[in-house]
Write a protein that binds this DNA or RNA. Structure first.
Length: 947
RNA sequence: GGGCGGUUAGCUCAGCGGUAGAGCACUACGUUGACAUCGUAGUGGCCACUGGUUCGAUCCCAGUACCGCCCA
């Protein structure tokens, strides 16, 4: 059955994909030669409930290219696939589903029932993204699919926690953390997005205690006094008025002369029956606002630091949902105790945390409602800083002056939860932390000394910058879906860390224990992905074989979340780097460079692209985009272009089929012995392409590899070689040309296979008797010995001649269908040989009729080549003036080139300083250009004689 | 504010010391034993700007402007 005109991607991809999966072509070690080196990649595990987006498609294409390339080379490959349980994300999805189904909420059904629901959801939708990866052509080892909550993974995670705890690398502490009031959990710094929003700055007066006053003096830059007044207050500015209820002090910079008279004095905290001190600290910026800052240790990260330095109590004002506290003693009781503490009464952190200093009227209010109330009450109390405002009564037209509170409208950076999108509240809570400072050293060293290479190099700088300034990592989450923390508490609050309840109990004989309800940050477990998927803590054969892994291909956006943490944790746990090379790429954007987002409506669904253009086209586009460090703009037009590229290859094979190239074809391991120049040449071009592809993939330059293949298949094989073959099929070299074409197209399929696996696998099966699937066919190893320099030179002459004839014909408007004669007016021996050996090719491609040697006939157009000159007699067919113009244009170009070359060569310091080969090249170039110019000059002269 | 990038043809991007490339788009023409998802020819660039290093700079260095991204 003859081949169809185009490749039917939709039909073939499903069939081929099934074939690969059924035959387990991607299983660990498949197609490995005995004693082969290992090559392994861990897939960045997608969220179990996720679906494939362009970023995944891009990322996994690159991994698959590497894996297929190494596998064809006979290396012992493993592409480890799996998914991540994605704590917050998954819990969020399931809670949303429950709400949609009007089912009981998480809290109503309780932990156990809820987790059962999550597992149900996982079983239902967890396979989606894995199946989508299969559509992309990913050749993972599907039998090894891992999940961060299954198999050995939970045990591995627990063991690491216990080990790290035992070594003092994990500790519990009350710290100010980012609190997500929607999920009611702590989150890490990295899970917070700081977004600029419209905010307000309010200015309040805190009145000095005991009726004290001071002289407030403001000076300009020259030291001239601009304001001098008696004040009984200090002015503070805040964007978060509601937190003033928990203030512990007012801070000013030690160098701020304005407040020097009142440092150490007490002020009345408005709306509260408390006095707080004015203290000095380096933190306030004297140039910003009034220069005085209220210090609320429990609700601001900067203030927390100040409070720690000044030993101020940090009073927590809100509950887990960020509403004002309702717990604890009545306000008057709480505040009485707070006054005692302020007066020096001994206290504990736990007691301070238990004191609810929210006045009764604000208790139970949402934080934003509380803000409105506080502002209103401050204004009512006359404690707002005010300004005189003139208003005009519309009816009477009378003007009136009155005081209004100062409220600045200004953009402020506000923290939002990256999942919940609600405003994050700094909150003082007990959490578990990894003491990252203690494990960061080896991770830094490994990259510094090259054990792990990060590419592009800018990623390395980012990595260093972050790790050198690393903060403790909060790893506890107040969620249910995840690895529960292996710590048990007794009734006195002591804790016991052990792998199991029985072992914890053994540490606390006779005590009643309850387990810490919290779970670990998802990234704590995914940080163990490389060893966890290989069976650690058991020393499995896979662990020995494939660890450390060869390469990690991942988005630059998770360098901190994941890459750096995997480095730290693998080094901490097994004392080895997790991977030798890290390849970081950017976010896939739309054609205009915009981030793809649902709200912008510019999301390109990779599955729709696959439906329309085929997976190969998408993959080729991904490879072609993957220049190191470049931005990734996904343009469907470009994908269409690569679909066309596939069609081009398809049709070259179809042409071969029509010409009997595939009759009885079996895979040849070596190229045929040939004599025709065109055949020698294309065999050499194939070898050059192999070298380029190998070099490019070695350097992770997927774009360079794609480019080399595109240029070879389209630009060399299809544009030239297939055309050359047409006349050759009619001559004595027909048999060797068929053999050459079969070999060259086979090689094209092989070399393209890592990037375009489907169409090449299909062609492979269509075009011959094959011992193996293409996916397991040996990658070639031939070298420069297949390149014939003489053939290259000769074909360069032939193609240049054809190009020049075509150009000349087009420029003087010779009808495309018209065959013309060609007269060689000058020929070097090489040119004569080339001309003679390839006349049928030249004749056909340049639409020529007669071939002769001799002087240029009258009314010819002239071509000048390196070592030859030709005339095309066109008497009566062409316009002499047009030909003159054409020659002049070419002359102008040559003259410009000659000018440049002469300029360089005439510069004495060029000859003196430039390398010899550069000088020689310039000289040779100049000579060749001058010869061409002379020929054209002669032609112009002849034209002038005609008229 | 700190860090990391980018600025090359109308668009999207390669190149990164020897005088500029691809794809797409555009224009004209459609002869051809596969391909109109095509062929042939062509148009199009002070390689952001200013200095420096060099015999020579789009490429290296410094600065300026503008645009991104990450972290505060």
């Amino acid at each position: 059955m003859p081949m169809e005109k185009t490749f039917n991607a939709a039909e073939a991809e499903a069939r081929i994909s099934k074939l690969w999966i059924d035959q387990k072509v991607g299983r660990a070690g498949a197609n490995a030669k005995p004693g082969a080196q290992a090559f392994s990649i861990m897939i960045p595990p997608p969220n179990v409930t996720g679906s494939l987006h362009m970023g995944h498609a891009f990322n996994n294409t690159l991994q698959d290219i590497l894996i297929r390339w190494h596998r064809m080379r006979g290396h012992d490959t493993l592409w480890q696939v799996g998914t991540d349980h994605a704590g917050i994300a998954t819990q969020m999805v399931v809670e949303r589903e429950l709400a949609k189904a009007k089912a009981p909420t998480r809290r109503d059904m309780g932990r156990e029932a809820f987790l059962a629901k999550v597992w149900e959801w996982k079983d239902q939708s967890g396979g989606t993204i894995i199946n989508q990866l299969k559509r992309l052509g990913a050749s993972c080892d599907w039998d090894r699919e891992a999940f961060t909550m299954s198999g050995n993974f939970p045990d591995a995670v627990i063991k690491v926690f216990v080990d790290m705890y035992t070594k003092g690398l994990i500790y519990r502490g009350k710290r100010l953390v980012n609190w997500d009031p929607h999920f009611e959990t702590a989150i890490s710094d990295l899970e917070v997005e700081n977004i600029e929003v419209k905010g307000h700055m309010w200015h309040f007066k805190y009145i000095l205690a005991g009726g004290e006053t001071y002289e407030y003096v403001e000076k300009d830059a020259e030291g001239t006094v601009t304001l001098r007044e008696k004040r009984n207050y200090i002015s503070i500015a805040t964007t978060r008025p509601e937190t003033m209820l928990g203030d512990g002090a007012v801070a000013v910079h030690p160098s701020d002369a304005r407040y020097a008279p009142i440092v150490g004095k007490m002020v009345h905290l408005p709306l509260c029956d408390r006095l707080i001190p004015i203290i000095t600290d380096e933190y306030p910026d004297p140039a910003f606002g009034s220069g005085a800052v209220k210090i609320t240790g429990a609700h601001d990260f900067n203030d927390y630091q100040v409070a720690k330095r000044a030993n101020l109590p940090c009073y927590r004002l809100m509950d887990t949902r960020a509403t004002m506290r309702t717990d604890g003693a009545p306000y008057d009781v709480a505040v009485a105790r707070a006054r005692e503490i302020a007066a020096g009464s001994p206290t504990t952190e736990a007691e301070v945390d238990s004191l609810n200093l929210v006045p009764e009227k604000y208790r139970g209010l949402d934080r934003f409602e509380a803000r409105k109330q506080v502002v209103a009450d401050i204004n009512a109390a006359g404690l707002a800083v005010t300004v005189l405002v003139k208003t005009i009564d519309e009816e009477t037209g009378s003007e009136a002056l009155h005081l209004e509170p100062v409220v600045d409208n200004k953009p402020i950076m506000q923290p939002f939860g990256d999942r919940s999108k609600v405003v994050i509240e700094p909150m003082l809570t007990d959490q578990w932390f990894v003491d990252t400072a203690k494990i960061v050293g080896p991770a830094l060293d490994a990259v510094r000394n090259g054990d792990t290479v990060i590419m592009p190099q800018s990623g390395e700088r980012t990595y260093f910058h972050w790790l050198e300034n690393i903060e403790p990592w909060c790893i506890s989450r107040q969620l249910w879906w995840g690895h529960q923390i292996p710590v048990w508490y007794d009734t006195e609050g002591n804790h016991y860390c052990a792998p199991s309840e029985a072992e914890a109990q053994a540490l606390a004989p006779g005590k009643v224990l309850t387990r810490d309800p919290d779970v670990l940050d998802t990234w704590f477990s995914s940080g163990l992905w490389p060893i966890g998927t290989l069976g650690w803590p058991d020393n499995t054969p896979e662990l020995q074989r494939y660890f450390p892994t060869s390469a990690l291909i991942t988005g630059a956006d998770i360098i901190f979340f994941w890459v750096a943490r995997m480095m730290m944790m693998q080094l901490a746990v097994v004392d080895q780097v997790p991977f030798k090379t890290v390849y970081l790429h950017g976010l896939v954007r739309d054609a205009k460079g915009k981030k793809m987002s649902k709200s912008l409506g510019n999301v390109i669904d990779p599955l729709e692209i696959i439906d329309e253009f085929g997976a190969d086209a998408l993959r080729f586009a991904n490879a072609a985009m993957a220049s190191l460090g470049g931005t990734l703009k996904m343009d469907t037009q470009r994908i269409a272009g690569y679909r066309n590229f596939g069609t081009k290859l398809w049709n070259a094979c179809r042409f071969a089929e029509m010409n009997g190239v595939w009759d009885g074809h079996t895979t040849a391991t070596t190229p045929p012995q040939v004599t025709a120049t065109a055949n020698l040449w294309i065999i050499g071009e194939t070898a050059k392409t192999l070298a380029e592809v190998d070099a490019a993939l070695t350097d992770y330059r997927f774009d360079t590899a794609a480019d080399a293949l595109y240029k070879f298949v389209w630009g060399k094989v299809c544009d030239w070689y297939v055309e050359f073959a047409k006349p050759l099929f009619d001559g004595p070299a027909a048999a060797e040309t068929r053999a050459t074409m079969a070999w060259v197209l086979d090689q094209s399929m092989i070399l393209l296979h890592p990037i375009m696996p489907f169409i090449t696998e299909e062609l492979w099966a269509t075009t011959g008797q094959r011992a193996k699937l293409l996916v397991h066919t040996d990658w070639p190893t031939y070298g420069a010995d297949l390149i014939t320099p003489e053939a290259d030179r000769e074909m360069a002459f032939v193609t240049t001649l054809i190009d020049d004839i075509r150009s000349a014909r087009a420029e003087v408007h010779v009808a495309a269908g018209l065959k013309v004669d060609l007269v060689a007016t000058a020929l070097s021996p090489e040119a004569r040989a080339a001309w003679g050996r390839n006349d049928s090719l030249i004749r056909r491609l340049a639409r020529l009729d007669g071939f002769s040697e001799g002087p240029a006939p009258k009314g010819s157009i002239t071509l000048a080549l390196d070592g030859a000159a030709f005339a095309i007699p066109l008497a009566g067919l062409i316009d002499i003036a047009e030909e003159k113009a054409r020659l002049s244009k070419t002359m102008d170009k040559l003259a410009k080139e000659i000018g440049g070359l002469k300029g360089r060569l005439n510069n004495p310091s060029f000859a003196a300083s430039a390398p010899e080969d550069v000088v020689d090249e310039a000289k040779a170039n100049l000579q060749a250009r001058e010869e061409e110019a002379a020929k054209l000059q002669a032609a112009l002269k002849r034209l002038a004689e005609i008229g």
